[in-house]
Amino acid sequence: MRRTEVRLSGEGGQGIILAGIILAEAAAIYDGANAVQSQSYGPESRGGASKAEVIIADGEIDYPKVERPDVLLAMNQEAYDKYAPSLKDDGIIVIDSTNVTAGGTPSFQASHVRGGPITGLARDLGREIVANIVALGFLCAVTGVVSRESLEKAVLARVPKGTEDLNRRALAAGFSAAQAEASRV
């Protein structure tokens, strides 16, 4: 049975948990796989560490937590430093290079680290708040854990009415950045 463990991490206010829900819905509702999503957060609504976990499988999911992620999204330095060492040997880390400098932990190969200026791209779109959607686009393009069509449907089903176009552009910006980055690697 295929089981992919995804950990999304950053700080409160970055939309980490919503990103986890959207990813899980893309997998479970639109791709037809199974998914379990869970999260942990501190007592702060803004700031403080935030973590969402998504497990995607084509069969039953028993243990619902991530043990060693296949995919890690690190939206700030603290999250990167904390979770990068837990990555599976052949896992992939996606970093927001606006906030994160990779390295310092040489236990995995640099080729496992994929990054783009996620928060910067969101600022370019005029709304930093869509950084989580940019990140999902980037992560989807790099890892293929869900299909792009399903991800877009899941994003549009969850975001507030009137912001669909902004979020569609955020998703596309993430995809383009990943493709541009891939051509450099």
Binding site: I21, A24, A28, I29, N34, A35, V36, Q37, S38, Q39, I61, P64
Partner: peptide, 9 residues
Amino acid sequence: EVVAHMREK
């Protein structure tokens, strides 16, 4: 809390 806060299909 595991079951209360986890999301599943």
